[in-house]
């Protein structure tokens, strides 16, 4: 009997986990490679998810449970792909741990990196204590660490940090930060009901189902103030509070506001640690480092290279449901590809 066909999945985030489950159902043998100790990717660091505020760990648990009990699926954590070579109809992969794999297809689900907010020095992340990022806040929501002020009276959210910013090398919109900011603004307002919460946005991109409802809720129920203007610089006054400067573009005048806490909505960028893998496979990518899809409408899961498939945020910022759907489509595409090969 022929052995089951191996499919290498680079990255055990939501996309990787979902695809592994589907591929196993189709009768393949998926092999997940994850550089972190735990599978799950960014989901591990998130508390609740928009728009319904489901708990992230529950979603992750469901993703993991389908994979963990499956004997066809192998997971290598704390390891990365050191070398990958194309053979005739397969790839020879050597992991950092020394494990060698022959895979008939490769699925790239390397996801994204959160933009390093300290690169926008004018916002003072890493310089002023009271400036944190969306990830820091989420981690505090999850019960880890603490926030720099005990009872903040005014809290600001800065949208588009490292997104839509040519100076940061990212022209793209990170898609999820607007709605995340609204979600986090509501959540923090629930914790500190007396605080005034501001969102400084360039454009509010509430494209998804029920996102607009969240926006309405934030305005109506929580009194969150939305100011249309990109924050240009942050300074510290003598008491150590933050002075935020922006333009209220709708009023047509510059605004200044003093904040106790400032949350930077760091966007999505290419995953830096995957550079070597992308290079070895000679994958085609855009200027910003996200991978290209060979046909974004009808064939979104392939990347011009034979036997290589892509899914999730490695081809550009995506919401979690979109990522999951892409993982499913990728499984289908791989199925189709391998069946055609056998015929």
């Amino acid at each position: 009997m022929n052995r089951k066909k191996n499919i290498l999945i680079a990255g055990a985030g939501p996309a990787g986990l979902e695809a592994a489950y589907r591929l196993s159902m189709m009768g393949f043998s998926p092999i997940l490679v994850e550089k972190e100790e735990m599978p799950g990717g960014h989901l591990n660091k998130w508390d609740r998810l928009f728009p319904e505020r489901e708990a992230a760990d529950e979603i992750l648990e469901r993703l993991l449970s389908r994979v963990k009990n499956d004997v066809n699926i192998k997971i290598f954590t704390s390891s990365y792909i050191e070398q990958i070579n194309e053979l005739n109809d397969s790839y020879n992969v050597i992991l950092s741990t020394g494990v060698t794999i022959i895979a008939e297809a490769v699925l790239i689900t390397t996801g994204f990196d959160l933009f390093n907010a300290s690169r926008k020095e004018e916002y003072g992340y890493g310089i002023y204590e009271r400036v944190i990022t969306n990830a820091d806040l989420e981690s505090w929501f999850k019960g880890n660490g603490k926030i720099p002020v005990e009872n903040p009276q005014s809290i600001g959210f800065v949208h588009c940090v490292g997104s839509r910013d040519e100076k940061a090398g990212n022209r793209h919109c990170s898609k999820v930060c607007c709605v995340t900011a609204v979600k986090q603004a509501i959540e923090i307002k629930e914790i500190f009901p007396h605080a005034t919460v501001y969102c400084f946005y360039m454009d509010l991109r509430m494209f998804g189902r029920h996102y607009e409802d969240m926006y309405l809720e934030a305005q109506q129920k929580h009194g969150i103030r939305f100011i249309r203007g990109r924050v240009s610089e942050v300074s510290e006054n003598k008491e150590g509070r933050l002075v935020v400067k922006a333009e209220d573009t709708l009023a047509g005048k510059p605004v200044k506001a003093t904040m106790d806490l400032l949350v930077l909505m760091a966007g999505m960028t290419r995953p830096a640690s995957s550079a070597s893998l992308y290079e070895q496979l000679d994958l085609s990518m855009d200027e910003d480092g996200f991978l290209r899809q060979s046909d974004a409408i009808l064939n979104g899961q392939s990347n011009h290279r034979k036997g290589i498939f892509v899914a999730g945020a490695c081809t550009g910022p995506k919401t979690l449901p979109d990522t999951i759907h892409e993982a499913d489509s990728a499984a289908m595409a791989i199925y189709e590809y391998l069946n055609r090969m056998t015929v």
Binding site: E121, E122, I127, E233, V234, S235
Partner: peptide
Amino acid sequence: TQLTPSIYK
């Protein structure tokens, strides 16, 4: 330097 707070801090 207003844009590089690390310097004046």
